[in-house]
């Protein structure tokens, strides 16, 4: 494997966004790119990352290799990379370590780290292709704000999506709160759009602790997409350049 990223920033942010949810995971490398799928310990949330080969310049991977990595250790190594550094990830065929090289843009500093790999026996889960009843795209910063505000009211949020908009409701001991985003297109700045497509109305409840955790990915993308169907896990997607993505799945709360 040899994969070079123009800016370490992307990889730093991806790892930062998932490291509190999952601790040990396999980065599955093959000729299509670097993928990761891992569930949290409580089996409530799942992270699915894809960094396509096109994200790297260049990308070369001659055979499928899983790189079992402790994300806490990887975070320590990535601290040494500045956001604008060129990052190269390298590994041998049957590796004991993954090699990370950080080069300053002006090329007067080269840092090289070897990170020990772990044997991780991780089962791969099939995520069924789902035609979601509702998808809502919105500014990622707005979603983060809504989740963190409502977490002060309650540990759960009910998300209701209709043709009119998407509503987040929290009911807590101190009172209730709700935020509605109406569909709109900002002609000057499409990053501010709220776009809803709906085949049937949905209403589901989720843990805000997990949703605020997913929002650690906010810096990766201007927009976030929520995909919902009644009685199936929510998908929260941060789309990245070159068809790469960071997706989170969250099991709904079950009504009594």
């Amino acid at each position: 494997l040899e994969a070079r990223l123009e800016a370490a920033d992307l990889f730093k942010k991806v790892v930062e966004a998932i490291k509190d949810l999952v601790q040990h995971c396999n980065f599955d490398c093959n000729d299509s790119g670097i993928a990761l799928q891992a569930m949290d310990n409580s089996h409530v949330a799942l992270v699915s990352m894809m960094l396509t080969a096109d994200t790297f310049t260049p990308f070369r991977c001659d055979r499928n290799i899983p790189l079992g990595i402790d994300l806490t250790s990887l975070t320590k190594v990535l601290r040494a990379a500045q956001s604008s550094d060129i990052l190269t990830i390298k590994s041998e065929d049957a590796p004991d370590v993954v090699n990370l090289v950080f080069e300053g843009k002006d090329q007067d500093r080269i840092s090289e780290y070897d990170l020990k790999l772990m044997d991780i026996d991780q089962e791969h889960l099939g995520i069924p292709d789902t035609e979601y009843a509702a998808t809502a795209s919105m500014p990622a910063a707005d979603f983060k704000r809504i989740c963190s505000d409502l977490l002060l009211i309650s540990e759960a949020v009910s998300i209701e999506c209709t043709k009119e908009g998407i509503t987040f409701k929290a009911e807590g001991d101190i009172g209730n709160g709700s935020v509605t985003l109406r569909q709109h297109s900002d002609l000057e700045n499409s990053d501010k759009n709220v776009d809803i497509s709906l085949t049937e109305p949905v209403a589901l409840s989720f843990s805000l602790k997990y949703l605020t955790g997913f929002c650690k990915a906010t810096g990766l993308s201007n927009q976030v997409r929520l995909c919902l169907s009644n009685d199936v896990p929510l998908m929260v997607e941060y789309a990245l350049a070159n068809n790469s993505y960071l997706r989170f799945y969250l099991a709904p709360k079950i009504g009594d």
Binding site: L46, L125, P128, A251
Partner: peptide, 14 residues
């Protein structure tokens, strides 16, 4: 108060 579901019933091992 509702309980928390898990992903196991939706996503099966490959």
């Amino acid at each position: 108060i509702s309980g928390q579901g898990t992903l196991g019933e939706f996503f099966k091992p490959k």
